[in-house]
Design a protein around this nucleic acid. Structure first.
Lengths: 354, 354
DNA sequence: TTGAAAGCGATACCAT
DNA sequence: ATGGTATCGCTTTCAA
């Protein structure tokens, strides 16, 4: 039951089973046990290490019987690697992250990495603390969706020579060459959304955004502005900035927008889309009759609203996979790549021509 | 700029700064540095360790200048503690977890713990792997929302003497006494939902659930059955089970339910609620006229549907905080507590009396 | 208040 | 194919 411990009173006080215990019990050296425990299985099921297959089998059996579990702290201390990567989204509870986390995890497993998530909660100080924690844990690499003011925190990782991949949000760190990037073509997203409404006959298209100072929002806005300009609608451009987390002022904005003749609205995030749809329902407004709408990210709300809502979707699977690919190749000493992926527009009733 | 390293070519090859480097540079022993680095600040801002305040300040200053960062692998190896707890939700991208993760994190920080998240993705094998990973990382405790068949994985943690708190879902592990629990009063949730529809005049109330075999769903169903029975509607009880992740059969079920006279529907999870609302919209059904509805968990969809939807909300903040409280007290050697919290019903138009 | 030294449990180098 | 042993960076007695 409990290996060579015969008296029940020892069970409670049982110390952790170490590689030495296994070695002694199996009659081999710790070196051998270490080899066996770290060997990956070849496609034939055999262990690909310089150890006799029978010895290996015996070691494995003893380890299982004794309940051996590798102590990663020790391994990491000695080897400097932990086979662990950290993922730090700006907000662990948001839509974008919910959709991408699983893809990241699955891709990481393929490379043999374990993934831990820790949230910065859109707060630079918190990001700094989280960064200290993951660096203290000797992670081999970090995927981060940085929040405003997070430069210093990210530089910590760079100073510690731990590879970093920026996901979803770009950032100027000075030492660009050493940072990987996996981003959405946000300008294109802004263009697609705006053009869709123009094609539907809208002229006075406005936009609501957050005053967060993050690249993705700035780029989506850029796409909106460019498209308005290239369609001769430069003078109709209007962007309203609300605070992240603040609720309520969106309703007033919509009323104002309508009173000045707005006929279309671009919403560059899921949460803004949800707020606006909710406000429109409260105000008894319909889309596209009263206002054309293009939202962002995937959600049940787009199909549940009275009219289905046109929205921009991000290639979450590709974003997740690529961020891991880029990070792993950096861990392996290759250079930092930058990848930009294209969004897609899912047409709905909210941009039907009137 | 870089401490005592004067030549630029050394910067690239700079090894990790250790406690010894700090000790040498500050002219003290490593013991002292260790004391200082681990000291917590008292309320007066002074360090509460047996070290001269001036010496301490000097050490701190040197550590900062050299860019010292504690190696948690070494600390954890030596001390056996990591000041880290792991949270393993059944699905990192689901509604319940999204709402609770922040509360868990904030409560953990109060106790000085770092938290890492890792998802089991509703899969027992995956949970087993994740459990190996977090145990290898020497976490001090684990909060887990177990998936079906996860007993063995959880027992691993128990065997390793790492405290475990079951969140959201109960589970029979044999050795009950050593497992903490923080659960919702799911029976009450089922009762509240059902009673609300009965009060609105419904008689033929049905329920859709998942064939997942998890306690929370079973208990919610129990509450539904009990309430139907105590209202003399035992013969009207009908529960349809769909597969988690499967989409599409809900629409057919609704049609069937209506054809046999159903007038109310209890949806015990968010995802079921979303599926049903979507199906109802496709079918052109209205609530409460065609069917009364009670959904689960908080979401934008409940206010965006043509009629607002009555739903049951869980005390996410309390669930998150309590799970950490219970875990920490277990880490401190106190006994395992079991806590059950009550749900609330948020009334909406979907259960207005007809 | 301070320091010397013994580990914690792996890995990795060097033998054999 | 296998074994001996010196580390990795920190905490933790025990002494001074």
């Amino acid at each position: 039951m409990c290996g060579n411990t015969s008296s029940a009173e020892f069970i409670e006080a049982m110390k952790r089973v170490t590689i030495r215990d296994v070695a002694r019990e199996a009659g081999v050296s710790v070196t051998l046990v270490s080899f066996v425990m770290n060997a990956k299985r070849g496609e034939d099921g055999k262990l690909d290490c310089p150890v006799n297959q029978d010895t290996a089998k015996r070691v494995l059996e003893v380890a299982r019987r004794l309940g051996f579990r590798r102590n990663l702290s020790a391994a990491s201390l000695r080897s400097g690697k932990s086979n662990t990567i950290a993922v730090i989204p700006n907000d662990i509870s948001n839509k974008f992250f919910a959709g991408i986390s699983r893809n990241i995890e699955e891709e990481a497993i393929k490379y043999g990495y374990t993934v831990f998530f820790a949230s910065s909660e859109e707060n630079a100080d918190r990001l700094s603390d989280v960064m200290d924690a993951v660096l203290a844990h000797n992670v081999d690499g970090i995927i981060v969706a940085p929040c405003t003011g997070g430069e210093a925190a990210i530089r910590k990782a760079l100073d510690a020579m731990v590879p970093v991949v920026l996901l979803d949000r770009d950032m100027d760190l000075g030492t660009e060459e050493s940072v990987g990037k996996v981003l959405l073509n946000d300008v294109m997203a802004g263009r697609m959304a705006t053009q869709q409404m123009i094609d539907a006959g809208c002229r006075n298209i406005e936009m609501i955004s957050y005053s967060l100072g993050i690249s993705s929002l700035a780029q989506r806005e850029k796409g909106y502005r460019e498209t308005m300009e290239s369609n001769g609608l430069a003078d109709r451009v209007n962007v309203y900035y609300t605070d992240y987390g603040k609720v309520g002022d969106v309703e007033q904005f919509i009323k104002d927008a309508l009173s000045r003749g707005a006929d279309g609205l671009f919403l560059p995030t899921y949460s803004l889309s949800a707020q606006v749809l909710s406000a429109m329902k409260n105000l008894g407004l319909r889309t596209p009759e009263d206002l054309a709408i293009v939202g962002f990210d995937e959600s049940d709300i787009y199909s549940l609203f009275a009219t289905t809502i046109t929205h921009i979707v991000q290639p979450l699977k590709a974003l997740g996979e690529k961020s891991v690919d880029v990070l792993v190749s950096m861990i392996q000493g290759k250079g930092a790549e930058s990848i930009v992926l294209n969004p897609e527009l899912v047409p709905g009733g909210s941009t039907h021509a009137k």
